[in-house]
Design a protein around this nucleic acid. Structure first.
Lengths: 153, 153
DNA sequence: TTATACTATACAAATTTAGTATAGTATTAG
DNA sequence: CTAATACTATACTAAATTTGTATAGTATAA
């Protein structure tokens, strides 16, 4: 796994990037979404739940229900997505822990990493999901299964 | 804890930064080092072991032994230190795993994070420990205990 | 020769991440 | 109306990683 990166982040971005490709016409049931993106159904469900709570994803219940992006892809940043699944929990606790570092705060070591973190976070804020959107035509060939999509309305 | 960062990395850099402050005159026993830097002795030992294996730290055994930086601080990068304690293990496995991502490699999402990772690694390569060196005068006041240092030779 | 220090590896606890289960609510086609 | 399908919300388990400890040994020098 990437240094900066956990699986949950990757999956969350992947889901949003795919929904961005469908935006704003189509909705897709979680079931199909999970098969399509190679994420287990319970895991997909969990992420959809978090993303909906943050207002990023919208859902429709019922037989022909499904999920869809609730925000224009040009306005949805990677930062928004990662925050929704829990970025803040892993950020910057070290600075608030006193007695952790023997040097008077801010020490050069932690300052350096704080700066790098800030730079990365800003970059995540700038990058919008529209730049990562993909559609069915972008899939690997071997994933030949085609799940039907429901046209919204 | 910092987003980019684990405790082990922090400790390893801290040890090297302190040894850089002593360079090239003094050596310090692990015991004193561990008390001084607020790292448990077994953990300090473990890190010293790894850093020595990588050639970064030198040691002297015996009653007046201890450890010291084995490389001029201006030539020792953060990257060298983090590599010594195991940076490579956490890096970029995702790209080599096939079937992990449904999109043909390199997909935009992973490319983006790869770029960011590369940028960070390059920065770590550029930054030398000399820029982080500290000495006893930099400690917080409350850490009033002063452990005696052995003068080398 | 003994006290102190490093060497090398094995082990265990704690935390985080990843993934599953389940009981429930909502919607709509038929 | 009702049964099938889909989302809702939370609790739980398993795997992996990180963190920290233990221990038996080797080396050195006062």
């Amino acid at each position: 796994m990437l240094f900066l990166f956990k699986r949950e982040f990757d999956f969350a971005i992947r889901i949003c990037a795919y929904l961005a490709g469908l935006y704003p016409e189509e909705i897709i049931p979680i079931n199909s979404l999970s098969k399509k993106l190679l994420i287990t159904k319970p895991y997909t469900t969990k992420l959809v739940y978090k993303l909906k709570k943050a207002g990023i994803i919208g859902t429709e219940q019922g037989v022909n229900g499904g999920v869809f992006l609730n925000v224009p892809p040009g306005k949805l940043s990677l930062f928004d997505i990662l925050s929704a699944v829990g970025l803040s929990k892993t950020t910057s606790e070290c600075i608030t822990e006193d007695n952790f570092c023997p040097l008077p705060a801010p020490c050069k070591i932690h300052s350096f990493f704080m700066e790098e973190e800030t730079r990365l976070l800003n970059k995540l804020r700038k990058r919008k999901i529209s730049g990562f959107a993909f559609t069915d035509s972008d899939f690997k060939k071997k994933t030949s299964n085609n799940y039907s999509l429901n046209i919204k309305e």
